[in-house]
Design a protein around this nucleic acid. Structure first.
Lengths: 137, 137
DNA sequence: CCTAATCTCTTCCTTAACGAAGAGACTTCC
DNA sequence: GGAAGTCTCTTCGTTAAGGAAGAGATTAGG
């Protein structure tokens, strides 16, 4: 098995795609939906317009995306206090709601993390943090 | 910023989904297509039937999935020597063909990897290897 | 041999999700 | 205070992708 970084990464990307889509499906969501939910989770409440800009969707699909997330109980619409045209979309139930839905997927990696020592885990989690930022469009 | 593993992972999952889907789109493929291609890449040539079982698709969609990968030049159909009902689907151009298509996505993480020392990189790539297996359904 | 099983592929239908265009409500600016 | 701009949402049409069912070719088994 190759240890060439490019090779290792290539193999990893496929697993990521699978894992991401699998995680999304385990929440009853599509990939775009989970991504949008993650955006809300990372950056806090925002308007449909902002969400539209961040996801690259036009406003129509964004409305329906929020409808799906709302129907699944992941987010809530609140009227914007300052501007009555606007709506605030905010995650419901704090971080735990999504965390619970992702639990089955996360558990798969639990044993993996347990196999590393403290310093190695720090390295891994540091990478996750940095990659989360680096991979943001 | 939290260092709780569950919290870190929750944040990372969204980035993975995004990154995986972005990588797939940069190849002109859908998520399932990239996953199937990754399977072929990891486990070598297999029949449509095997691919169907591994992806969880029924045979109809699998045929069209292979059509798409073949049209995009990622795989090739070869008659099976032993059994003339069967077809062998094999990646074209070895590892490099997919690696090239994924290059733009991979470059985003290049600087990140460069920021770690040799031992830390070993830990990360080791994790990638193990996660690739662990995340397989 | 001749029937049953296997394998791929085709056809038809359904569903999910997106873009485009515009309506309706509200705000801003002159 | 009225016109223009902004924001969300709705409607309509399109596309991509999956399931179900069965056709056609080949192999296996009695």
């Amino acid at each position: 098995m190759s240890t060439d970084p490019s090779e290792v990464y290539r193999r990893y990307v496929g697993a990521m795609v699978l894992h991401g889509l699998h995680a999304a499906r385990s929440c009853g969501l599509g990939g775009t939906d989970l991504y949008a939910l993650n955006l809300l989770d990372l950056d806090g409440p925002m308007t449909p317009g902002e969400l539209s800009a961040r996801t690259g969707l036009t406003t129509g699909p964004t409305t329906r995306l929020i409808d799906r997330l709302e129907a699944a109980g992941f987010v809530r619409r609140t009227p914007s206090p300052g501007d009555r045209r606007k709506v605030i979309v905010e995650p419901v139930g704090g971080p735990t709601r999504l965390a619970e839905a992702l639990a089955p997927a996360r558990e798969k990696l639990g044993d993996l993390f347990a196999g590393y020592d403290e310093a190695e885990r720090r390295t891994l989690f540091d990478y996750f943090e940095r990659a989360t930022d680096a991979l943001r469009p």
